[in-house]
Every structure is written in structure tokens, then in C-alpha cells.
């Protein structure tokens, strides 16, 4: 790993200032950042790594009235083990407990999980081998390359700092993003509160709408009846270590008037299966309805050369999870 200076931040504000001033990146669990630094994939290697773990009191898991509040630095293992989370948002505990591997879950954090950079192998290739659009470069190499793990719902358009238009077909592979979406979580940052539908985004070196220097502080999960009746399913090639190829969260309120369905690994941001939700809202699940909802969830998919299998998986996984909710 190339050298960098290291600063233990004592408050989010100082950390935020440092990152904002440029040349610095924040580190939480390090599960995403350290491999990226070792792989030397950033166009500009950071001069300073700012440690957030030195800031006291950011790893809490508490219940505040009807809201589950989780500090951005709570580890995935602590969330998975937490009786509070298990009782009030079981799919969050499940998702947190199935990310990566047991040892890595002990140090990686919820904040890092939702803010992690794309896993696209062109983006991640050593020594910034592919100066791709997600790094401000002109091209998405996956579109004409090997895109078996990429989006089936098209690319994301975004602008570089210089205002140039770019496209990227890498997917969001956060373990927790679909869950936080269907549970309508709120993301509290150093400057604002962002709703679940607005939080994730696509930009140069980011998978969220956070501005440079804006740091995630807390995630709030309203304990509505959605949290009680929900499912989480991950699909990966191995039973451990792997990022999910596709993951899926479904939640429904008690009168079944509203279904929330969100998929990861299929689009540049967590994908809300609106068509399927509309089809299901107000209905009880039958085998025919589940099948139709699966097809609806995949509606509009335009797979690339190597990833049509994801469409099949969307249909099957949505159908099967719904069938457990009859």
C-alpha cells in the first residue's frame, strides 16, 4: 500500500472539514477503503486517511420511541447480534449477518456498507488500469466488455465535477441497501436528513448523494408494521465471502395495502420494483400473483450480452419470497 498520513478525528465536524478540503478520505471499518487503497484505484491517491472510529459514540444501536437508531459506525456483526434489531427489524439483522464473512463483519460498519464503491472489475482493476467514467474518465468499459455482473436496468447517467456527462452500468451491491429501502430508513448526515429513496446515487467515486465531506452519522429505521412482515434474500455463488449477485428485500404493511420491494445487484442504484409493488398492493399472495409479480419486477429489464440470467433470477427470487408471505 502506498503511504498516507493518518489522523484520528475527534469529531465528525473536524473529519468532515478535512475531507472537504481535499486529499483526504474517511475510514470507518476499512472493508471497502483499504482494499481500494491497496489496489491503487483512485485517480488521486489520498494524502490523508481520517479515522472516524476515534470519534466517540458513533456505534450505538438504540430504540428511540418508534425509531431504531443505528450509529454509522455500528459493525455489521453487532447489528446482526443485537436483540433490539432482531426483535424490531429482523431482516436488517439477517442481511447484516450474511454480508461478507464472519470475521470481516466484526469490523465493517453499516455506514461503510451503504456507502461502498462499486464492485465493477473494471473500476477495481489494479493501478487505475481502466480510467472509467466512475473515476471521471470518458468510458464505461463494461458496456462493451464482460458485464456478467452488471446492470440489467440500464446505465446511470451522471455528471463529472467539470459537468461532463457520463454513463456507468456498475450495480449497487450493498448488502443492506435493499433492506433499508423497504424499511423506509432515513439517513442522517453531518448536514441533513435524507430519505431512503433519495440517498443512493451515482457519481464520480460515490454511490450516494453525499457531497464531499458530508459524512453519514446515523441511520433511522421507523418501526412501522413494514418492519414486522418482511423478507430478505441474497443470491450469491458461494455461501460466504461473496458479495451478493442479487439481493432482495420485501416488506408489506399489515393490511397489505402497500408492498415495498427493492433489489440490489441489478441496477446502478438499489432498484425499487414499482411495477411489482403496484400489482401487489392491496392483495393477498397467491401462486399466480407471486409469479406475475416476479415478471413485473423484471419488466423493463434490458440485459447486456452476459447477464440475462439476472432477469430469470429476479423473476424467481421475487416469486419465491412472496410465496413465503401468503
Amino acid at each position: 500500500m502506498r503511504p498516507f498520513n493518518h489522523i484520528n478525528a475527534n469529531s465528525l465536524d473536524t473529519a468532515s472539514e478535512l475531507v472537504k478540503s481535499g486529499g483526504a478520505v474517511a475510514i470507518a471499518g476499512g472493508g471497502d477503503l483499504l482494499p481500494a487503497l491497496k489496489d491503487n484505484i483512485f485517480p488521486e491517491y489520498p494524502k490523508i486517511v481520517v479515522n472516524l472510529k476515534s470519534i466517540p459514540g458513533l456505534d450505538y444501536i438504540t430504540l428511540d420511541g418508534d425509531t431504531l437508531k443505528i450509529g454509522a459506525l455500528a459493525t455489521l456483526a453487532d447489528i446482526a447480534r443485537s436483540p433490539l434489531v432482531q426483535a424490531n427489524a429482523p431482516i436488517l439483522a439477517r442481511a447484516a449477518g450474511s454480508a461478507s464473512s464472519p470475521s470481516l463483519r466484526e469490523t465493517t460498519t453499516i455506514g461503510g456498507n451503504v456507502c461502498q464503491l462499486p464492485r465493477c472489475w473494471y473500476f477495481r482493476k489494479l493501478n487505475n488500469r481502466f480510467d472509467c467514467s466512475r473515476k471521471g474518465g470518458g468510458q464505461c468499459f463494461a458496456i462493451m466488455g464482460d458485464n456478467r455482473y452488471h446492470s440489467v436496468f440500464g446505465g446511470a447517467g451522471f455528471n463529472t465535477d467539470a459537468g461532463e456527462k457520463r454513463t456507468c452500468i456498475a450495480v449497487n451491491q450493498s448488502e443492506l441497501a435493499p433492506v433499508l429501502n423497504v424499511l423506509t430508513a432515513k439517513f442522517v448526515t453531518t448536514g441533513r436528513v435524507i430519505g431512503n429513496l433519495d440517498f443512493f446515487g451515482v457519481g464520480v467515486l460515490t454511490t450516494t448523494v453525499l457531497n464531499r465531506g458530508e459524512l453519514l452519522k446515523e441511520i433511522q429505521i421507523p418501526l412501522t408494521d413494514f418492519a414486522k412482515n418482511s423478507r430478505y434474500k441474497r443470491f450469491a455463488f458461494r455461501k460466504s465471502i461473496d458479495f451478493p449477485v442479487i439481493n432482495l428485500a420485501i416488506a408489506v404493511n399489515s393490511d397489505r395495502s402497500q408492498y415495498h420491494i427493492c433489489l440490489g445487484g441489478v441496477a446502478p442504484t438499489p432498484y425499487i420494483a414499482l411495477k411489482a409493488e403496484e400489482l401487489l398492493n392491496g392483495k393477498t399472495i397467491t401462486p399466480e400473483l407471486a409469479e406475475a409479480a416476479g415478471i413485473a419486477a423484471a419488466e423493463g429489464a434490458k440485459p447486456f450480452e452476459a447477464n440475462a440470467y439476472k432477469v430469470q433470477l429476479i423473476k424467481t427470487l421475487v416469486k419465491r419470497e412472496l410465496l413465503t408471505m401468503t
Binding site: 458461494r238 455461501k239 460466504s240 465471502i241
Partner: peptide, 10 residues
């Protein structure tokens, strides 16, 4: 990570 060898669960 991307070249997958079976784990104890696989």
C-alpha cells in the same frame, strides 16, 4: 474475492 474457491459452507 472474484475468483471463487469453495468455502467450508460450500
Amino acid at each position: 474475492l472474484d475468483y471463487r474457491r469453495p468455502t467450508t459452507l460450500d
